[in-house]
């Protein structure tokens, strides 16, 4: 007689929900066969990590024009990197100072296979991912790798990545070290270029990552 049961929107389904109140208040002492079947069916259909993964419907094409191989996969890469393989820090470029290493090790991405593979990518690959997969998790990881592990910084104004090189000078000079800046030219040459000598570093132009 309850009003809810007379609502045409719900009256069909409501009795099923109401039935569950019985088993909530007084669970079966022994699991009846019907319940066991349902439980086993649930085990059989148990959602896995792919079910729990992020939904994607529309995948943006690559953000900038660039030829790609037809063998390029469309689905996100999902795999497991063996846990006990040592994280060998990137060979090629920069000084990775130990305090930023520690910072990286404590974030939630550091133990994922994808983040670990990114530590092995060379700069070219990282920049490619950054500029072509905008708005994606992969772009996020590439910027994390560039900034946290390789000490590049992102300029919000010209959208380029910059790197500060410190060169130790031989003794007897006016100063002990010299600072020079490089940036990655993604627009034209797709190369790292030296900044002009009158480049001035303005902290506020760079993204705090």
């Amino acid at each position: 007689q309850n009003q809810a049961f007379r609502n045409p929107l719900f009256n069909e389904e409501l009795k099923y929900w109401l039935n569950t109140k019985k088993t909530l208040m007084q669970p079966y002492k022994e699991m009846p066969q019907s319940m066991l079947s349902q439980l086993e069916s649930s085990l059989l259909n148990c959602p896995d990590s792919l079910d729990a993964d992020s939904p994607y419907l529309y995948r943006k094409p690559l953000s900038l024009p660039h030829p790609t191989s037809i063998f390029f996969p469309n689905e996100p890469i999902r795999f497991i990197y063996p846990f006990d393989l040592k994280l060998s820090n990137n060979a090629t470029n920069n000084n990775t100072n130990t305090s930023s290493q520690k910072k990286v090790k404590n974030d939630i991405y550091s133990n994922t296979s994808l983040a670990k593979i990114f530590t092995k990518f060379d700069l070219d690959t990282l920049f490619f991912i950054f500029y072509h997969y905008q708005g994606t998790y992969e772009q996020f990881l590439s910027s994390r790798e560039l900034n946290k592990n390789r000490n590049w910084q992102f300029n919000k104004v010209d959208r380029c990545w910059y790197y500060k090189e410190i060169e130790k000078l031989p003794p007897g000079m006016n100063k002990s070290e010299e600072e020079s800046w490089r940036y990655f030219d993604y627009k034209k040459s797709w190369l790292a270029r030296r900044c002009s000598p009158d480049f001035v570093y303005k902290k506020e132009d760079f993204e705090k990552l």
């Binding site: 148990c46 896995d48 992020s54 996100p76």
Partner: peptide
Amino acid sequence: ETSRSEVEPKFSIP
């Protein structure tokens, strides 16, 4: 047994 692939964690992009 149902953890054979890694899942995308939360992240945000400036």
